[in-house]
């Protein structure tokens, strides 16, 4: 059996004295599409940022691929296996292709190898025609697509997308949903949030519900999910 990508024990997040959420055991599988739901203000974004190593991590233990990680290396290890995409992505004041190249350059890619990977990513997202355009001049949907592509090209074990569908028109939303569907087929883990129903995302493997500081999980892997992803509260759910 494949070991989970991440396991966090007694994960919690405080805002001052208030505990925003407390999760006794959080398990992120090694592959699959996970949808994190919850109303505004429940702490979905903070949970994603915590898993991305961008927010302070308050937990008892962290396991990566079944191995314990020393506390001093938690943040570093989380950043090494994840890429986080904001709901309103921040793009560099550069062209579309330079934005995609940024992370690859940090990985040491140069020259023709870099160009090949950037072009591959542009093709994957259908952004070839916008390769030389200034990223900040793109539409909202295109900017979000670019940000996801910029993250995808780095091949992270866990891709974290915050509200990727929010505020998009029907066409852009459909395009992004298709892309998220492709991501789900790539045998990596994608955790994305939504505060609204996504009835057409039938490929979702798990739905996580964040409510009243508790996280519950509904597993749909191998089942017809499209009927249930319309975001009524699941009839039965596992409290984590």
């Amino acid at each position: 059996m494949t070991k989970p990508l991440l396991q966090l024990t007694d994960l919690r997040r405080r805002l001052g004295r208030r505990v925003l959420w407390q999760i006794p055991q959080l398990t992120v599988p090694a592959a699959g599409s996970l949808l994190l739901r919850g109303h505004n203000g429940t702490g979905k974004t903070l949970l994603l940022k915590t898993l991305a190593g961008l927010d302070k991590l308050d937990c008892q233990a962290l396991q990566l691929h079944g191995l314990n990680v020393a506390q001093s290396r938690w943040q570093q290890q989380l950043r090494a296996v994840t890429v986080y995409v904001h709901s309103q992505p921040w793009l560099f004041e550069r062209t579309t292709q330079s934005n995609i190249a940024y992370g690859l350059q940090r990985q040491g890619l140069r020259g023709s190898h870099l160009r090949e990977r950037v072009w591959e990513a542009l093709e994957w997202a259908g952004l070839q025609d916008l390769a030389g355009q200034r990223a900040r001049q793109l539409s909202t949907g295109q900017q979000r697509l670019l940000a996801i592509t910029r993250a995808w090209v780095l091949q992270p074990a866990l891709l974290l997308l915050d509200e990727p569908l929010a505020g998009l028109d029907q066409m852009a939303r459909q395009q992004l949903l298709e892309l998220l569907g492709h991501l789900a087929e790539e045998h990596r883990t994608v955790l994305w949030t939504s505060h609204e129903g996504v009835a057409d995302a039938g490929w979702v493997d798990e739905i996580w519900q964040l409510e009243d500081g508790q996280l519950s999980r509904e597993i749909y892997r191998g089942r017809q999910a499209s009927a249930v992803v319309s975001f009524h509260r699941p009839a039965s759910h596992i409290k984590l």
Binding site: L54, H86, E93
Partner: peptide, 26 residues
């Protein structure tokens, strides 16, 4: 500015020096 820029640079794999350089360039 916006904290998103720092987080973006961090999540895309920048080390400390590279992060500072990128933000200065921006």
């Amino acid at each position: 500015g916006d904290r998103r820029e720092l987080e973006t640079v961090q999540t895309l794999g920048s080390g400390r020096l590279n992060m500072i350089w990128t933000l200065f360039v921006e």
